[in-house]
């Protein structure tokens, strides 16, 4: 079976291409610049240069494919402007859907984010049917939600789909903006001191990348779910425990300084506004902070029942990730 993976040079895309090729699939990988593909060529991975915002450039990559895994997205949450988010995440998805329709694609797997579904409530983790009760916090969430609407819409119009709302990914892989958890773990391991807002009880769901790869592979199997959304996640954990595990596994002597959330947000906002005046985008902005400290516990039973994937515990996952990062350095 031939599978097109968009965003093949990204954190998830690159690992997914190698994984599926290893599992016997023929992978067509789409990226804007083939030089970004850092892996050696194999018989069953073909890299195509193309830009989702220019529909004519994706036709060649899709030829012969029956399934698309749309993993490309603009994720730079520190970008204050809408344009790139819209162009890549909404317009890009639309162009790909049109091409998918023209090529009678049998399954369009859209890699989305758990954050599209909003926040969790005490004792009630986010689930597939949960209505979103808060406004979209940032351009990324908003444009992913708009893209999901398009995917569902095309689903009624002959492009069968599967939306995967993936939780926070971590684990070995490329260093990109999408793997913030890896960077956070690295800072805990290497840092001497870290200032954090006093909301360390905030829980989120963390998914080890190898588990994500297995789950996505299961979506390609005959009889796998169609025309619905699945929350693909791992373990729920708060920041306090995440930091504890990372400290233990790395032997770090990191000192934590917890400041009131409002104070941290004000400082970040001040730095952000000064940066904006000077035309410099820092790595952080208040919206990103809000998003990181939004409760995002997830209920993953539905996806696990349908896809039969196992989850790696955080202890082992973090240990593997830290080992990988140590070897990289």
């Amino acid at each position: 079976m031939k599978v097109l993976i968009t965003g093949v040079t990204g954190y998830l895309g690159s690992r997914l291409a190698l994984h599926l090729a290893g599992a016997g699939y023929t992978v067509h990988g789409l990226c804007r610049n083939r030089c970004s593909w850092k892996h050696s060529d194999t018989n069953n991975i073909r890299i195509f240069e193309g830009d989702l915002t220019k529909p004519s450039t994706i036709d060649l990559a899709i030829l012969g494919c029956t399934t698309i895994i749309h993993a490309a997205a603009y994720t730079r949450m520190n970008d204050p402007y809408m344009k790139k988010f819209y162009d890549a995440n909404v317009q890009g998805t639309y162009n790909l859907l049109i091409t998918a329709k023209n090529h009678n694609i049998e399954k369009f797997i859209f890699i989305s984010s758990l954050s599209v579904l909003g926040k969790s409530f005490p004792g009630v983790p986010i689930h597939e049917k949960q209505p979103r009760t808060i406004a979209y916090q940032n351009h990324y969430e908003l444009t992913k939600a708009m893209a999901e609407e398009l995917v569902i819409d095309f689903g009624k119009d002959s492009v069968p789909y599967l939306i995967l709302n993936v939780s926070r990914l971590y684990g070995p892989g490329n260093y990109t903006f999408s793997n913030g958890v890896n960077r956070f773990l690295q800072r805990i391991a290497k840092g001497k001191c870290m200032i954090l807002p006093n909301r360390l009880h905030t829980k989120a769901n963390y998914l080890y990348i190898d588990d994500a790869l297995l789950a996505i592979e299961k979506c390609l199997h005959p009889g796998s779910p169609l025309n619905e959304r699945l929350i693909v996640g791992g373990e729920n954990c708060d920041y306090r425990n995440l930091i504890r595990i990372a400290r233990e596994k790395s032997g770090s002597s990191l000192k934590l300084i917890c400041l009131p959330y409002g104070l941290v947000r004000t400082i970040i906002k001040f730095i952000y506004l000064v940066g904006k005046l000077l035309g410099v985008h820092g790595t952080f902005n208040p919206k990103l902070l809000d998003s990181l400290f939004t409760e995002r516990e997830a209920m993953i039973t539905h996806a696990r029942t349908l896809l039969h994937y196992n989850t790696t515990g955080l202890e082992r996952g973090i240990e593997n990730t830290l080992k990988f990062m140590n070897n990289e350095n």
Partner: peptide, 8 residues
């Protein structure tokens, strides 16, 4: 989502 986009 579409209204939010228009607003932003």
């Amino acid at each position: 989502a579409s209204h939010t986009y228009q607003n932003r």
